[in-house]
Design a binder for these strands. Sequence first.
DNA 1: TTTTGTGAATTGCTTCACAGCA
DNA 2: TGCTGTGAAGCAATTCACAAAA
Lengths: 229, 229
Amino acid sequence: MRPPKQLSVNAPMAKTDHIPAPAVKRLSLYLRQLETFHAADRKTVSSRELGAVLSLSDAQVRKDFAYFGQFGHPGIGYRVLELIQRVRRILGTDKTSNVLLVGVGNLGRALLAYRGFSQRGFDVVAVFDADAKKIGQKIAGPSRLVVQSLEELPGVVSDSKVRTGILAVPATAAQGVADIMVAAGIRGILNFAPTVLRIEAGVSVSSVDLAVHLEQLSFQVGPSDPQTL
Amino acid sequence: MRPPKQLSVNAPMAKTDHIPAPAVKRLSLYLRQLETFHAADRKTVSSRELGAVLSLSDAQVRKDFAYFGQFGHPGIGYRVLELIQRVRRILGTDKTSNVLLVGVGNLGRALLAYRGFSQRGFDVVAVFDADAKKIGQKIAGPSRLVVQSLEELPGVVSDSKVRTGILAVPATAAQGVADIMVAAGIRGILNFAPTVLRIEAGVSVSSVDLAVHLEQLSFQVGPSDPQTL
DNA sequence: TTTTGTGAATTGCTTCACAGCA
DNA sequence: TGCTGTGAAGCAATTCACAAAA
């Protein structure tokens, strides 16, 4: 299955045969764990170790990386720092990218205060809200962001080359704001509103529904009232 | 090297042969959509319609429900209200359940203000933080909650029959707090800290890593700088 | 040795297609 | 007719197992 495809100075992401979505999801988890290993000064790690921490088989780990090229060193394992850099490149987070946020309610403010985004290469460069009372408000913290009107969104997208937007508005407003984002040129939306967005093909949507996660737990934990039908 | 296989789900319904995890996930999405249909006064819905909204095949929808029993009516479809009730029972959200939250930072406050939880049958009955300065603070809103010390957590768990906890603390504190939760009898943890929790079998964990979702989008959208190595 | 990378085998999930019922 | 429920088929993802490399 592998033609003599040496990847040295070539092949940025050449082999996009077809990558399972679950593998891409795990890539983020590997990256996070690799960064933990790096912080602990580990130089190399084997597929077995990395898998054990994440409750995955060693074969799973190796196959996931193999979708993207040759990353490991037989007899040694994977070099932590090298693998971090290559995974970041695959995910497109090796360079910081600009994102915008719409919806400065409780959730929006929490997301703005969340340090994890900038640590992982995402920089919130503009904030919008539909509520006229919020426009002009300064966001607490070092960001110096000021809440802008939605009307200014298209201009910001083209000026700042923003490709990704975070949607933290009520469910009833989500579709309308999403339409504005897409029309302005946004190519990916991280949606926190508990509703289905209808979006044209070519634009990616990732939805996070907090209640859904609690329901999944509820199912796994089982009914508190074990009999009953 | 096999990942641990826990989960001894005690069968609430007769036919708990083995249910695919993706099917359970979709159940939450079906429920949300059914509630939307109900709000629009729809009395029945076919697998085709329900699937179309969620971008799923009709067969997928029927098979998912079939894992749990006979829900539909040939020639009619599914009765919306009846299906809502049965899905809620399956997920264990037909009766409100008590949950607790640890970590009253930005994210924790946003989660406390999120109405979605109570709408879906979850009631946050207690809030904890490790920071002595926060203990005793009242939480804004109608809940009348007061931030408590972690030392009081075990008592609250047994008194209020809390089985689920939301973890909204920094990554460095997450494992320690999780251990306290588990020791106190918590059976399910919704974890917002970007770290892997090591938890004994029999306790479920669902992790939400906000940065991971952005990374997935980043991969799907592709590099902003398409050439380059 | 240890450990990767990968074809082959296996497991699991989704779709197909149709019997049966309203 | 319209639609569900379900075995069978098809496809996708995971695990197995081993050659090759250090």
